[in-house]
Every structure is written in structure tokens, then in C-alpha cells.
Design a protein around this nucleic acid. Structure first.
Length: 648
RNA sequence: GCUGCUGUAGCUCAGAGGUAGAGCACUCCCUUGGUAAGGGAGAGGUCGAGAGUUCAAUUCUCUCCAGCAGCACCA
């Protein structure tokens, strides 16, 4: 038998028989390692302990100390254990796929009856039995026909399809957890006893399409989460509770920001408090855009379908547009309009008025564009995904040669705004040409290169999303991370040579001939509605002072201080601070509690002493201590704090 | 749109085949109290909408609407 040389992480190499498995390697090193081993990394690939090694390789044996591999295996093996538990309880259920995802896994099942929350408990209990049984995991490579015959004989039609989808030349790997069998890529643990019986939880059931295709049958997906130990599971539960506390729908009600109701699904009734956030943010954005060389326009809401046909939206998005039919007197046919789902075609109309010269480019045309899209009912989510929204939209009409410099300028613009808004952790994704596309390879090369170069020139790295671009051009997506680590795609920049072509936009070049401009669609916040939702959740409602809708409440301790409270409020208002007095006949405890819950950043209390000394007792949100300050000092401080970051 | 679940007072929720209840919020009264709920009284509901079963429906059935969790979608 021929020998192979295995190199270990410490640099030492040893010769072994060809075809040796990591399990045997571990055994050769030490008894305890062989017991603790969970998997290996062989030449960079995550490797099952049972898979043979055929050539010289670098080998690292993993134990539960290696978080990345341990979690991957725990979650993956639990997916199998759950599927086994389900089939042991309900033998007629068909199994499909069960990958690792986020903090756990899911597994999709085909079963006529829906799973109930009580079922989840029963499955969990059965899973614990399987873990306690410490059943060995075994694996074999099978031939395609053999595997298909096996699954057909068991009526596992979804597995048959999966086997058929495995590309030629790839191993068809069969796994057993005890007697229970599944088709699986692996790797897996040595035995189910290596799983933590107290660190997983089945979270919920939901429908999911087979292979993610809405034309295919809907299966039942059971989600689970799993960690290395109970402590980590608890931490996850705490984190989920924290996220629930931050839910913008809950905070929106508690802070009296907005409401939504049945008669206008997917649309927002902004209350005075919420609208204050909105307008403050919009005023800020308007100042930024003016400073950065944009011109602001405003365009119609209801536009004849002819324009949408010309732009191509009618063909692609008719289903998602609000159609408005107008039956004009004496008209043979109704006029068909659509509420605008986006602003770009209208912006091209503005561009097309009058002759444009190359000297006019780049032309940066901005609009706080109110759009309406008939989003599928299941997509709606609070103010984050709505049917009526306003984008901080702009289109930069430019020449191809401007793409790079305009993109760099935009990235710097966006970076400054995110920083002002308190988001310092964000990243860029570059989506490149998809399979179905229009335009020449040269123009794609140029556009993709321009976007990449612009990122580098602005000093940012980017991640490439192969084939994720729009059919007409590549795009950048800007993803920010919020205070509890969740990611939100907000900003975007898309290169579009198509729409100017379709809507016949042109400019007179230096050569006196007509040329086609390129459009860059771009947004920083995305939509105000969604962005405000993100702000609320990221700050848990405790917005930065300048954005807080109610900045100061002056509470009285005794009614004799009412007049002074009004004086304090007047002084704050004169300084541009949003202040109100609370002179209700309630105790200070009561008032402090109420305004704290409403997330008012500063509570000023005034009683006999304050009236006497012309001071206020200052209590800041989130702090227990209070401090006495002179009226002049607090007004000066809050006057500054109330200014938007760009006005300081 | 699809699967499952939910819809009772402003909010959070309980309830039962015989037309409803709690806490908080609200109004009034007492209380002037020093930093996260002082006390008392009162008012408040076509039980999401429509149809069906029934002597009787808010409760059971069906349809619709909306919401929630996923999936699909997101120009």
C-alpha cells in the first residue's frame, strides 16, 4: 500500500497509508483526541472523520473547541436528528433538505397535516432521546442508480429529484444517524452523543416552496437554533427579546409616531411626533444635496401608461403598480394611468426639456419622490416595507467617462451622511453583469471597472456579487450594520444606459453631435419610511437629540412652579429646542416614568428651589442621576445639541 | 401571492352557544408630592366585515379584509 504524507498545524509531517481517515489519524495521535474529535480540515476543506484521504495533505483535527466547525456540525447534525425524530413520530412524512442557516438550521418536510407548536415540543423531546442514544454516524458513497432506486422504493420523491440534480462526477453521499438515513454532502459528527442536548431549540414552523420556487409545492419548514452550550442559547434568547423590544411597530405606538390601519394597508399615518423625525431628516438631506451640487425637482404622481410602456416598467411591473383609470366625459376609452412606482422616467422628462449640452453634465437631479407600489400583501412589514413611500432619490445624468468620478463623489457623500446619522459600520457590495443582460461587453467592462475604481479611490473595499447586477448595468449596494449587529441595505447606485435610450434622452457633445447620456440611479437612505424604521430600531427609540421629536419636557414638582416652567419652555423654544411643560397634578415620579418611557431625551424638573435660584434639575434619558444647572447653561447646551450635525 | 397562526375597550390581554371582563391609559374628585406608577369614583365595546347553522352566534362553519412568522417578491 502506498504512503501519503500528512502535515499538521504545528508543521510536523507524518507518513500514513493512502486512504487513511482523519478518525484513524486522530487515533494514531492520542486516544483522547480520537474521542474528542468532531471533524477535520483537509487541504482547506471541512472533512468528515470517516472520509479517506488519498493524497498528501495538510490536516487539522477539530474538537468542540473549534467554534466554526463545531457550530456547523452541531447545527447540521441536529437538522438530521430533527428529520429522524419527525419520521419516527410520523413515518409517512417525506423529507427534503435541511441546511445550516443563521444561528441554526431548518428542514423542509412534505406532510399533509400542518405541524403545530405542540408538535415541536414532541419533536424536541424525541431529538433528546436520539442524542442520548449516542447513535453512531456512518457514511458511504453510492452510485446514482442505486441511490435513486433506494429512494424510489421508499417513496421519497423529493430525494429522488435531489439525487438527479447532483452533477455528474460529484459523490453521492449517504449518511446514517443510527438506522435513519439521509442523502447529505456532510461532514457530520462521530455520533449523536456529541450534540448538546440542552443548547438547541425549535423555534417555529412556516411554509416554504420546494427549491425556493413559487411554482413548486409548498413544504413545511421547521426552524431550529443551536449553540455549543446552554449559556450561548440563553444569550441568543436574550438577544431576541432585545430585538423584540426595539420593534419599530411597538415603539412607534409607544412614542406616538405613526399608525397604520386596514383602510390603507401598507401606508402610514404619520402623527406629529413621527412627522417631526421625518421632516428633520428630510431637511437635513435637502441641505446635504444642495451642498453637493444636486438640483431638486418634483414630478407628477399619476402618469399615463404610455410613459410606463416607453420606460419598460409596464411590461415588467404592471402587476405591482397602482392603476388609476379615469373615465373622462365623451371618452371612448378610459384613460389608464399608474401611480408612479419610481421617479426615473419622470426625471428623464425633465432632462428632455430643452437642449442639453455636454457642459450641463453631470446633471444631478434629486427628488424626494413619493412612490406607490402594489407590494404583495405578504411582503408588507410595519413602516419598513410599505406601498406608499418616499425615496431620497436622484439621477445623475452624465457621460460614461464621468461614472467613476461621480460614483466616488457619491460614496463620499453617503459616507458623510451615514457618519452624521451615527452609522459608522457599513460595507459596499458590487453586483456585476447577470446572464440575461443588454449592452456591449465593453460598456459592462467599463461600468464595472468604474464602480470598483471609485470604491478604491474613495478608500473602501467592496465585495463582489457575481451576476447580481440589473439587466442594464452593474450596481453598488451600501449595507449598514445597526446597533445590535443587524444588516440593512440602504444606499444604492446603479449604472443605467438603458432608460436614456428608451426615453430618448440626449445631449449635444463637444463635437456638435447628439449623444446619449448615462443615468446613475442613486439613493442614500433608500426610503424615509424604512430608514426611520431602522433608526428607531437601532437606537431602541432613544434617538439622537437633534432627531428626537420631543426633546425636552419641563416637569413641575409643585404647582407654584408652573409659571417658571412656562418660562423655561419659552427660553428653550427661543433657542430652537422642542420643549413642552408638564404641569399636570401628578407626582414627579409619575411624570419622570411617563416621559422616560416615551423616550424623551431630557427631563427638566422644577420645584421651589429651582424657581428661587433660576435653575433646573436635569435628568437625561438612561441616567439615574440628576444635576442642577442654571437656566442659561442648559439652554446654551441644548441649543447646540438641537442642531443637526451639519449645522454645528 | 403561498403556508400556518391571529383579530374582544386607546394599549396589553382574559372569557364563554344565552348579546362581555381585568390591568394600564382616559375623565372627575382628594392629594402640592423632589426624580420610573399616591388614593377614590366614573365613563368607555355592532367582540375585524359579510353570509350560513341555531330558538339564540362575539363564541360553530364558510367567504372576505387586515395583522403576525416564514416563503416567494422588492424596478
Amino acid at each position: 500500500m502506498s504512503q501519503i504524507s500528512l502535515t499538521f498545524p504545528d508543521g510536523n509531517a507524518r507518513d500514513y497509508d493512502k486512504g487513511i481517515t482523519p478518525a484513524e489519524v486522530a487515533e494514531s495521535i492520542s486516544k483522547s483526541l480520537s474521542k474528542k474529535a468532531i471533524s477535520a480540515t483537509v487541504n482547506g476543506a471541512h472533512w468528515d472523520l470517516q472520509w479517506p484521504i488519498e493524497d498528501d495533505a495538510t490536516v487539522a483535527i477539530h474538537t468542540m473547541q473549534d467554534d466554526e466547525q463545531a457550530l456547523e456540525l452541531i447545527r447540521h447534525d441536529l437538522a438530521h436528528v430533527m428529520a429522524r425524530a419527525v419520521q419516527e413520530i410520523w413515518p409517512d412524512v417525506k423529507v427534503t433538505i435541511g441546511p445550516v442557516r443563521d444561528n441554526g438550521w431548518f428542514y423542509d418536510f412534505d406532510r399533509a397535516e400542518p405541524f403545530t407548536p405542540e408538535d415541536l415540543g414532541a419533536i424536541e423531546a424525541k431529538m433528546k432521546d436520539i442524542i442520548n442514544a449516542r447513535d453512531a454516524v456512518k457514511t458511504e458513497v453510492w452510485g446514482r442508480d442505486e441511490a435513486i432506486e433506494y429512494y424510489e422504493s421508499r417513496g421519497e420523491s423529493f430525494k429522488v429529484e435531489l439525487v438527479n440534480r447532483i452533477p455528474e462526477g460529484e459523490n453521492i453521499r449517504m449518511y446514517w444517524h443510527g438506522d435513519w438515513q439521509d442523502l447529505c454532502r456532510g461532514p457530520h459528527l462521530q455520533h449523536t452523543g456529541q450534540l448538546p442536548a440542552d443548547a438547541f431549540k425549535l423555534t417555529h414552523v412556516a411554509g416554504a416552496y420546494w427549491l425556493g420556487d413559487s411554482d413548486r409545492p409548498m413544504l413545511q419548514r421547521i426552524y431550529g437554533v443551536a449553540f455549543k452550550n446552554r449559556k450561548d442559547l440563553k444569550a441568543w434568547e436574550t438577544m431576541m427579546e432585545e430585538a423584540a423590544k426595539r420593534d419599530h411597530r411597538k415603539l412607534g405606538r409607544e412614542m406616538d409616531l405613526f399608525h397604520m390601519q386596514e383602510e390603507a394597508p401598507g401606508q402610514i399615518f404619520w402623527h406629529p411626533n413621527g412627522w417631526k423625525i421625518y421632516t428633520t431628516l428630510q431637511d437635513y438631506m435637502r441641505r446635504q444635496q444642495e451642498r453637493d451640487g444636486y438640483v431638486e425637482v418634483n414630478t407628477p404622481q399619476v402618469v399615463n401608461r404610455k410613459l410606463w410602456e416607453a420606460s419598460g416598467h409596464w411590461d415588467n411591473y404592471q402587476e405591482n403598480m397602482f392603476i388609476v383609470e379615469v373615465d373622462e366625459d365623451h371618452a371612448r376609452e378610459k384613460t389608464v394611468n399608474a401611480l408612479k412606482p419610481m421617479n426615473c422616467p419622470c426625471h428623464v422628462q425633465v432632462f428632455n426639456q430643452g437642449l442639453k449640452s455636454y457642459r450641463d453634465l453631470p446633471l444631478r437631479m434629486a427628488e424626494f419622490g413619493s412612490c406607490n407600489r402594489y407590494e404583495p400583501s405578504g411582503a408588507l412589514h410595519g413602516i419598513m416595507r410599505v406601498r406608499g413611500f418616499t425615496q431620497d432619490d436622484a439621477h445623475i445624468f452624465c457621460e460614461e467617462s464621468h461614472i467613476e468620478s461621480e460614483t466616488k463623489k457619491f460614496i463620499e457623500f453617503l459616507a458623510a451622511i451615514y457618519a452624521d446619522l451615527g452609522f459608522h459600520d457599513w460595507s459596499i457590495k458590487l453586483s456585476t453583469r447577470p446572464e440575461k443582460r443588454i449592452g456591449t461587453e465593453e460598456s459592462w467592462d467599463h461600468a464595472e471597472e468604474s464602480l470598483g475604481n471609485a470604491c478604491k479611490a474613495a478608500g473602501y473595499d467592496y465585495e463582489i456579487q457575481e451576476g447580481e447586477g440589473a439587466f442594464y448595468g452593474p450596481k453598488l449596494e451600501f449595507v449598514l450594520t445597526d446597533a445590535i449587529g443587524r444588516e440593512w441595505q440602504c444606499g444604492t447606485l446603479q449604472v443605467d444606459p438603458n432608460l436614456p435610450e428608451r426615453l430618448d434622452a440626449n445631449f449635444v457633445g463637444q463635437d456638435g453631435a447628439k449623444h446619449r447620456p448615462v443615468m446613475l440611479h442613486r439613493a442614500v437612505l433608500g426610503s424615509f419610511e424604512r430608514f426611520i424604521g431602522i433608526l428607531i430600531e437601532s437606537h431602541a427609540g432613544k434617538l439622537p437629540f437633534w432627531l428626537a421629536p420631543r426633546q425636552v419636557v419641563v416637569t413641575t414638582i409643585i404647582s407654584e412652579a408652573d409659571g417658571y416652567a412656562d418660562e423655561v419652555v419659552a427660553a428653550l423654544k427661543a433657542a430652537g429646542v422642542r420643549a413642552e411643560a408638564d404641569t399636570r397634578n401628578e407626582k414627579i415620579n409619575y411624570k419622570v416614568r411617563e416621559h422616560s418611557l416615551a423616550k424623551v431625551p431630557v427631563i427638566l424638573a422644577v420645584g421651589a428651589r429651582e424657581v428661587e435660584e433660576k435653575t433646573v434639575s436635569v435628568r437625561r434619558l438612561g441616567e439615574k442621576q440628576t444635576a442642577v444647572m442654571s437656566l442659561d447653561d442648559i439652554v446654551a447646551e441644548l441649543k447646540d445639541a438641537a442642531l443637526a450635525p451639519d449645522l454645528k
